[in-house]
Design a protein around this nucleic acid. Sequence first.
DNA 1: GCCAACGTTGGC
DNA 2: GCCAACGTTGGC
Length: 138
Amino acid sequence: MATWLVKSEPDAFSWDQQVQNGTEPWTGVRNALAANNLKAMRKGDRAFFYHSNEGREIVGIVEVAREAYPDPTDETGRWVCVDMKAVGPLPRPVTLAAIKADPDFADLALVRQSRLSVMPVGAAHWAKLCALGGWTGK
DNA sequence: GCCAACGTTGGC
DNA sequence: GCCAACGTTGGC
């Protein structure tokens, strides 16, 4: 199972909405690198749900419910989306400040490429972020 | 609200 | 196909 991190501005689509809706299409990605990451996602992969701009913290975990398919919000038909299902909130959201303060995360894409909206997270980083977030679920 | 990073567009 | 101009993202 691969692990990822996806960003959303809470003004546009927040964690609360994700939880309320259960499963939700992850649309609106218009960046080639991010789109490649979406295409590499497999059903059952997990991803951190990160609030950009407002909050700037990892607030929860979602799971890929449907692999890449054409983004219905894209008129050109060039871009794809996936479906994400809410798994659960992090008991203690992990802030960007905390991530940046830890040298272990210096090579995390979130730190290195701040504008990328969909990125892979290595197994070691995933485990550490789960621990920091107080995540005890599976 | 400002600015840095960076992707995209369009003129040549 | 290069590169300057411009737009967008997102941290601060």
